[in-house]
C-alpha cells in the first residue's frame, strides 16, 4: 500500500466503519425475516405445512446427515420424497384443504408408507446410480483413450516413432527436474546439519 491510501483511510475511519456495520445488520435480520416468513406460511397454510412437515421428515433427516456441500443425497431423497408426498398434497389442495383431511392423510398408513418408501427409493437411487454411472464413465473414457491411441498409432505409422519423441523428451525433462528437486531436498538437511554443527 502506498502512503496516500493509508492517509485516506486515516481521514475517513467513520465511513469504513459504517459500511462494515451494514452487513452484520443484514445478516442478523435474515433469520428474523425467515421466521416471519415461515410463521406467515404456517398461519396461512397450516394443513399443507403439517402434511409437508410429517411427509418430508426423511428429507430433513437426509439434509442433516448429508455433509457434502452439493447435498446430492438430500436432492435425491427430497425429489423422491416429494414424489411420495405429491398425491397427498394434490388430494388436499383439490378437495377440502383443511386440517382434518391433512390429519387423515398423515395418519393413513398407506399414504405415509408411500411418502417414506418413495424417500427410501431416493436413498436407494443415491446409493445405486453413482457406481453404475462411474462404470459408464470408465467405459466411455476407455473408449476415448482407445480412439486417441489409435490416432497416435496412425501418426506413428505415417511419421515414424520419432514423432513421439516430443513426449519422451518431456518425460525425461520432467524426470530430470524431479531428480534435481530430490537432490536439492537431500542436500538441504546436509546444509541444515552443517549449520547446526557450526
Amino acid at each position: 500500500m502506498t502512503e496516500e491510501t493509508n492517509n485516506q483511510e486515516e481521514k475517513n475511519p467513520r465511513v469504513t466503519e459504517e459500511t462494515d456495520g451494514e452487513e452484520p445488520k443484514k445478516r442478523s435480520l435474515q433469520p428474523l425475516l425467515w421466521v416471519i416468513f415461515i410463521a406467515i406460511i404456517i398461519l396461512a397454510f397450516p394443513e399443507t405445512v403439517m402434511l409437508l412437515f410429517i411427509g418430508m421428515l426423511p428429507t430433513f433427516v437426509a439434509f442433516i446427515i448429508d455433509r457434502s456441500p452439493q447435498k446430492y443425497l438430500t436432492c435425491c431423497v427430497c425429489a423422491m420424497n416429494v414424489t411420495g408426498v405429491f398425491p397427498g398434497i394434490h388430494e388436499l389442495w383439490t378437495t377440502q384443504n383443511n386440517i382434518a383431511l391433512a390429519l387423515k392423510i398423515v395418519t393413513n398408513i398407506f399414504d405415509l408408507s408411500l411418502m417414506y418408501l418413495s424417500a427410501a427409493m431416493g436413498w436407494f437411487i443415491y446409493s445405486i446410480v453413482p457406481p453404475i454411472i462411474r462404470i459408464f464413465i470408465k467405459i466411455i473414457g476407455q473408449q476415448r483413450i482407445n480412439l486417441l491411441r489409435g490416432q497416435q498409432q496412425n501418426l506413428t505409422y505415417e511419421w515414424g516413432k520419432d514423432v513421439a519423441n516430443i513426449i519422451i523428451s518431456k518425460d525425461i525433462e520432467k524426470k530430470s527436474n524431479s531428480n534435481q528437486q530430490n537432490n536439492e531436498i537431500k542436500e538441504k538437511p546436509n546444509i541444515a546439519q552443517s549449520s547446526a554443527g557450526r
Binding site: 436432492c75 435425491c76 414424489t83 437411487i125 464413465i137 466411455i140 486417441l148
Partner: peptide, 28 residues
C-alpha cells in the same frame, strides 16, 4: 481422460452423484 475416468476420481464421483440427483428429479 485416464485421470477423469477413474471411478475414484473427484469428477467421476461428482458427475455420478449429479446423475443420481437428475434421475431422481426426472422421476419426480
Amino acid at each position: 481422460t485416464e485421470k477423469n475416468s477413474n471411478p475414484e476420481s473427484e469428477i467421476a464421483v461428482k458427475t455420478s452423484k449429479q446423475a443420481a440427483s437428475v434421475i431422481s428429479i426426472l422421476i419426480m
